[in-house]
Amino acid sequence: MSRQRSSTDLLKFVIGGGINTAFTYGLYFGLQVVMPYQVAYALAFATGIVFSYWFNATIVFKTPVSWKGFFSFPLVYLVQYLLSAVLLSVFVERMGIPQSVAPLVVIIVTIPITFVLTRWFLRRT
């Protein structure tokens, strides 16, 4: 894969992540008005995984959408969450980065890792 293609894919990945974040936050905000916030969060989070799978498979990496891929794609989110939780702890407790800033640093560090993991995963399924 060429560097330019990889850079274009990364840009599309980041844009898709921004769209997904805005959409799921808006969905959560609307749902929590009519149902308990935890239920609203779970539905918005699950919807975000579905959108992320579809967007990354069809638009970013142009891979076929499949049931196998769909049902195993949440593993990407699990790995990303675990890595983010560890990094957040290290940044706050060991490096003294303020709690309000540390999640932003985590996002910056994990975007390339999540990109590579998502690309690898989608090309395998």
Score class of each variant (00 low, 15 high):
Gln4Phe: 05
Met35Lys: 10
Leu10Gly: 07
Tyr37Lys: 10
Val79Trp: 06
Leu27Met: 14
Trp67Thr: 13
Tyr37His: 12
Val90Cys: 05
Met95Trp: 12
Val105Phe: 09
Phe73Trp: 08
Lys68Thr: 12
Val65Ser: 13
Val14Thr: 11
Tyr41Lys: 05
Val79Thr: 09
Leu122Ser: 05
Leu78Met: 12
Phe51Gly: 09
Ser72Phe: 13
Leu104Tyr: 07
Gln99Arg: 13
Val101Ser: 08
Ser52Ala: 15
Ile107His: 00
Ile107Lys: 00
Gly16Gln: 12
Phe73Lys: 09
Phe91Asp: 02
Ile97Ala: 14
Tyr37Leu: 06
Thr8Tyr: 05
Thr8Val: 01
Ile15Glu: 06
Phe55Arg: 04
Thr8His: 11
Gly26Ser: 10
Leu75Asp: 03
Val76Asp: 02
Val60Asp: 04
Ile49Asp: 10
Ile19Val: 14
Val39Met: 08
Ala57Glu: 00
Leu43Asn: 11
Val90Gln: 01
Phe45Thr: 01
Leu43Met: 13
Trp120Gly: 15
Arg94Val: 14
Ile113Thr: 08
Val109Asp: 00
Ala46Ser: 07
Ala44Ser: 05
Phe61Ile: 02
Gly30Asn: 12
Gln4Tyr: 02
Phe70Arg: 02
Ile59Ser: 15
Val33His: 11
Phe29Pro: 01
Val86Lys: 13
Leu117Lys: 00
Glu93Ala: 14
Val86Asn: 08
Ile113Glu: 01
Phe51Asp: 03
Val65Asn: 03
Ile19Ala: 07
Thr125Gln: 04
Leu88Arg: 05
Asn56Ser: 14
Arg123His: 13
Thr58Ile: 12
Leu27Phe: 09
Ile108Tyr: 00
Ser89Tyr: 09
Tyr37Arg: 02
Leu117Val: 13
Phe61Thr: 03
Ser6Asp: 07
Pro64Arg: 15
Thr58Gln: 15
Gln32Ala: 10
Leu82Trp: 06
Trp120Asn: 04
Thr8Lys: 08
Thr125Val: 11
Thr125Lys: 03
Val101Gly: 04
Thr114Cys: 05
Tyr28Glu: 06
Arg3Leu: 06
Trp120Lys: 07
Tyr41Ala: 08
Gln32Arg: 14
Ser52Ile: 05
Ala42Val: 15
Leu78Tyr: 07
Thr63Ser: 10
Val90Tyr: 00
Gly17Gln: 04
Ala40Glu: 01
Tyr53Leu: 01
Gly69Val: 09
Asn56Lys: 03
Tyr53Thr: 01
Leu87Lys: 03
Ile107Pro: 00
Gly30Leu: 15
Gly96Val: 04
Leu88His: 03
Trp120Tyr: 14
Tyr77Pro: 05
Gln99Cys: 05
Glu93Thr: 13
Ile113Trp: 03
Thr114His: 01
Leu31Val: 06
Tyr53Asp: 02
Val76Phe: 08
Val105Ala: 10
Tyr25Glu: 02
Arg94Met: 15
Ile15Gly: 07
Val105Ser: 02
